[in-house]
Design a protein around this nucleic acid. Structure first.
Length: 572
RNA sequence: CGGGAUGUAGCUCAACUGGUAGAGUGCCUGCUUUGGGAGCAGGUGGUCGCACGUUCGAAUCGUGUCAUCCCGACCA
């Protein structure tokens, strides 16, 4: 048993001033985490216990889908990352350094390279496939912006799993098993995940899902359609454009002095934002070239940079500078697709279905009315037709044009990804197939940030007084509160030993403190079952049984029946 | 990397117009108290982030720097 009087870590009466999110406040106030530096946290003993419970759940589920646990190094030779092409692809979030022999090294931010390298050394025959390797391992990502306590940190433990298959079909089948295992993991942690399709980027994969905790504090925007079941991260969500039909009118140049924003222009001309055409300009690194890219999109929509990046197969897109814009013959604030010279012009699907838009005139202080796609301009560059580069939002039509989409926020707590053969090809992870050909393994990867999941559990399960642990991940099963010393405390120790003999972990508050202090701390720590022993209950040979969850009533339970009832509670 | 803000006791925060450091809480001691963060008394605890400058004198003004937080950009 853990005696509170001896437990390292104390509770705080007030939240640290840097705590914004509820999970950060309660983890800090309960003494489970302490900040060491930006994005770097110490997890104190009680927090560590909860982490280990979460890991145990994950380990069970990984074993249930035939995963084999291993351990790969955090420090890796840069060479490995050069082989996969990510050494130069990834920016400064990848920490690079040299060891004493001046060899370039990195701190791994994920382990695809290492696991593929290791697999390639063992794999030779299709008979060995499929297999799945996984680990709990540190990752280091020098995030430009850590936030939310454990929600977004720089160093963290991730459960990362990698599966290897002889073909796509086998991967597809396994992917579904991993998907189901993920649902079980989160439910056992008390979270009902929202599952969305997610960006696969240029990593070579085609299908990926993110598991989200729905929360207004989430960093991601999710698009859901309750009627059709469609769900996707907003950055890739598809939707039907509502057109603006009309007979094409002659273009007309109008003065709009000092009005360069969509809202200002629309107001001045007495039209809606949806009747305008806006140009959003980017620089894009494609291959080893930097290209100027202009996106023409209807004024009521926002550009999804993820979609732009994917459409262009670009590594990076960034906001274009005024110089780049002028070099393409465009006037910042009054840019128009008509008269653009050079570069790539992407046109969103919203543009061709909308008649007589107001666009810039490529001349400061002027716009042009009644601009129509096809008649007045078309796409330029590698694309022959308009593409989907708009960000979906609340109220848009789902792709079939029948139902309205909903938007919610979410915290990403896990992802699964059909990687394909990108890494196995790059690192030579091949095998001999039945037909004697040599083929690269088809891979999938599956990640869960353990610390972020811990924080998400708390974010999802707390009240005004502290944490409310779900049964499966609570750091202790029973919190015994001794409201006195001497024989009364002896009785508590006796019960604690009985509970431990039955396999439960017990926290015993043996401090010589007033009851109020103990109850306040009990609420902060949030152990599901609190058993208090005071003078009155002791006379009746009973403990006061109080559950942490909302609305539970206190009741007396005879000391002799406690173990049985705790067993029933945790089985139920 | 842009925009905004903040750095004073372990924690949360005060300190006017420049005059030499405060409260609450925590921690230690004693007495009283003992069912929802007790009361009284005494005590502990700070190079006012750091550097330079202005000044007779700087927590306070200026410059620089570092750190932290928020918004955005970024996020295999």
């Amino acid at each position: 048993m853990q005696l509170v009087s001896k437990m390292f870590g104390r509770t705080l009466r007030e939240a640290p001033s840097d705590a914004e999110m509820a999970c950060h406040v309660w983890l800090a106030r309960a003494g489970l985490i302490r900040r060491l530096a930006t994005g770097l946290y110490a997890v104190q003993p009680m927090g560590h216990k909860a982490l280990k419970r979460i890991e145990a759940v994950i380990r069970q589920e990984m074993e249930a889908i035939d995963g084999q646990e291993l351990s790969l190094p955090l420090v890796q030779p840069a060479e490995l990352w050069e082989k996969s092409g990510r050494y130069n692809l990834i920016g400064s979030e990848l920490v690079r350094f040299k060891d004493r022999g001046q060899h370039p090294m990195v701190l791994a931010m994920t382990h695809e390279e290492a696991v593929t390298q290791v697999a390639s050394e063992e794999l030779s025959s299709h008979r060995q496939l499929p297999f799945m390797l996984w680990q709990f391992q540190l990752k280091f990502r020098d995030e430009p912006r850590a936030r939310g306590g454990l929600i977004r940190v720089r160093e963290f433990t991730m459960k990362d799993a990698y599966s290897f298959h002889k073909d796509q079909e086998c991967l597809d089948e396994y992917y579904q098993r991993a998907y189901d295992a993920y649902v079980r993991i989160f439910r056992r942690c008390g979270i009902e995940p929202v599952i969305v399709q997610s960006d696969t980027g240029i990593m070579g994969g085609k299908v990926a899902h993110e598991f989200m905790l729905q929360s207004p504090m989430g960093e991601d925007s999710l698009i859901l359609c309750p009627e059709t079941g469609y769900s996707a991260n907003a950055e890739i969500a598809v939707f039907a454009r509502e057109g603006i039909p009309g007979e094409e009118l002659p273009m007309e140049r109008v003065a709009t002095p000092g009005k360069s924003s969509i809202d200002d222009v629309a107001k001045l001309l007495g039209v809606e934002a949806r009747n305008t055409l806006k140009m959003v300009m980017y620089g894009a690194e494609i291959g080893d070239k930097t290209e100027f890219v202009a996106v023409a999109i209807r004024g009521d929509l926002d550009v999804s940079e993820t979609k732009v990046k994917n459409a262009l197969k670009a590594r990076v897109v960034f906001a274009a500078t005024d110089d780049m814009i002028r070099a393409a013959g465009l006037v910042p604030g009054y840019a128009s697709p008509i008269g653009m010279k050079g570069g790539i012009l992407l046109v969103d699907l919203s543009v061709p279905v909308s008649a007589n838009l107001v666009a810039g005139a490529n001349e400061a202080g002027f716009h042009v009315k009644n601009v129509n796609y096809g008649r007045d301009f078309t796409v330029a560059g590698p694309f022959s037709e308009p593409v989907d580069v708009a960000q979906a939002a609340e109220g848009h039509l789902e792709i079939n044009g029948v139902h309205r989409l909903k938007a919610v926020r979410g915290i990403e707590i896990g992802n699964i990804f059909k990687l394909g053969t990108k890494f196995s090809e790059a690192l030579g992870c091949t095998f001999q197939a039945e037909d004697k050909t040599t083929r690269p393994a088809v891979m999938g990867c599956y990640g869960i940030g353990v610390g972020r999941l811990l924080a998400s559990v708390v974010e999802d399960s707390h009240d005004d007084n502290g944490i409310v642990w779900p049964k499966e991940v609570t750091p202790y099963h029973v919190h015994l509160v001794a409201l006195g010393q001497g024989e009364l405390l002896d009785d508590c120790v006796k019960l604690a030993k009985e509970l431990e003999a039955a396999g439960f972990e017990v926290l015993l508050d043996d401090r010589d403190e007033r009851p109020g202090v103990k109850f306040k701390d009990a609420d902060l720590w949030g152990i599901p079952v609190r058993l208090a022993l005071g003078g009155k209950s002791r006379e009746q040979g009973a403990f006061e049984w109080k559950e942490r969850k909302a609305g539970s009533e206190m009741r007396l339970v005879k000391a002799t029946e406690i173990v049985e009832q705790v067993e029933a509670f945790y089985k139920g």
